[in-house]
Design a protein around this nucleic acid. Sequence first.
DNA 1: CTGTTAGCGCGTTCAG
DNA 2: CTGAACGCGCTAACAG
Lengths: 339, 339
Amino acid sequence: MTFRRKTAQRSGVTIKDVARAAGVSDATVSRALNRPDDVSEKTRKLIEAAIAQVSYVPNPIARAMKSGRTYTIGALIPTLDHAIFAKFISSLEAELDKEGYSLVVAVTDADPDLETHKAQKLIDMGIEGLVVSGLAHNNALIEKANRFHIPLVATSYYEPDAQLPTIGYDNSATAQMGLQFLADLGHQKILILHGPTANNDRTLSRIEGLKAQRGTANLEFIETTLDLEGAERALAPNPLEASAIFCMSDILAIGALFHLQRRGLRVPDEMSLMGFDDLEFSAHTNPPLTTIHLPIVEMGQRSAQEICAFLRGDRDITAAELMPEIITRGSTRRAEEPS
Amino acid sequence: MTFRRKTAQRSGVTIKDVARAAGVSDATVSRALNRPDDVSEKTRKLIEAAIAQVSYVPNPIARAMKSGRTYTIGALIPTLDHAIFAKFISSLEAELDKEGYSLVVAVTDADPDLETHKAQKLIDMGIEGLVVSGLAHNNALIEKANRFHIPLVATSYYEPDAQLPTIGYDNSATAQMGLQFLADLGHQKILILHGPTANNDRTLSRIEGLKAQRGTANLEFIETTLDLEGAERALAPNPLEASAIFCMSDILAIGALFHLQRRGLRVPDEMSLMGFDDLEFSAHTNPPLTTIHLPIVEMGQRSAQEICAFLRGDRDITAAELMPEIITRGSTRRAEEPS
DNA sequence: CTGTTAGCGCGTTCAG
DNA sequence: CTGAACGCGCTAACAG
């Protein structure tokens, strides 16, 4: 079928047309629509008939204009191709819906210019709140949100002293926790595989945390693209002298696992492997992946709740630290004692 | 940091306040904002100063009220947890952005009631177009969109005779194509693994296509949940007498692969495995997965283009068939000749 | 180049 | 219970 244009923009029939058709005033129609109890049974029926007859449909914009509210929240995310962001958006949207808000998503591809552009677009369309990923945003964005009095929340990050409220986890400490886990298993030489650091403060923070703990183990860092292919490319030319690989993202860990399998290296016997995210996939690989579970769903919920509470006027938005957790599965084991 | 409420709703300073502060009329302020060239350098400066002074911020809703447009499109999708939908949304959003539109996403969990609820919410907020997944939608939804003169596009489906324009592929024919591929390899007994059929016309259509081709091979159908766990649960109790498993979704195929690995069955030597979707993962498993590539990105782009063209008044929305394609990789091989 | 006037569609006074 | 009138914030038309 083809959808045929029936009318120009928004049908054009207004409350006035209904009023005329029903032989009442527009105010009465408005009332019949908003507070039916204040209208007599009889005229209400009359109006309903008129509405159907002239096929009236209320104009949401005019409504919003009166209330001054759009019940719309924006989210600026670097990508949707990574399951972790999809899950976050999903959780955010579900929680916002409970409070009557809708979610507009804008993908930035981790490009600051695109981010600025989309932020402006979101603001222009009247969002009442904005959620972004990470902390490293051009000041233009922060200032803009401020100027428009739009509450801004940074997620995937926890930093109580930041310029804007953060709802997330401590990337640095979490990476350190993972490293410690591996070190405690006796791993001395560890390969760190991570995604792009450009415009990605989450990754940067993880790496910094790791570097600060250099004493713990001998660390080698490799940066690559954040996909399975990236893991392959990073590891293929590597002699793999480490006894463990710690990936700053499960997608890389899974890519590493596939690579190691192809290379004939057994995990965890010949190589321990640890991830970061806890994707659905990670629990099902062979062996299942030891990883760090990120509280993504809670992050979405919490972000929504904070913004909604703020908009309701209940309270200011406060930063919140959510706790990641190590999930021990089969891809890690104690390092061989040096013989 | 905590975000402190500075002001009640939308700051309240209007174009009038600016006009007063600058000593000009409101129309001039409006002009200075929208067509700066029509205003003298001098008064423009004056106005800019006034804007900063009273910290004016334009009200997008009032703007929308004049133009009658919101430049917002809604998408109703069953889930974001499945990468295929995330990718679709991503592509849709990117293309809509090019035309100046924003995308509001609403997740329905494949629940008709939720779908109705969210559809209404989207309409109430003033979307100008709506994209849904699949064809099986309660008439209420279709009728509603019609009543509000909102163009509606159904995706992941192609059905030229449907009630609403579809942009997608022929699920039935595509499944048949996959089956034929396996049959041509000599597979006589094939296990079909598929996701829930309830409220999912895409899956239903694939199954129907397969059943219509029953003559081609001996088919056994198993329904399960659409996740890795689902594949595991479905296959664990199965004796696996088939020589090939055809999964109606890559996620199931990958789950199946993991299961077979654990079970010690070699793919493709002892079991051929074929998917449906072509996720990023599928190209990287061991062995890489033979699957059917779905034109998801094109689907998003095309949907956006059709809606935008329609809204521009250029033309009606017409259905479009996009062609899936078999991607032959390592998980399938010719069946052993019966000895 | 700038000011005045007149609404956009709706909800909300305030009278009746 | 109902109607008349006003105004939300902004912009398009028309004068000047």
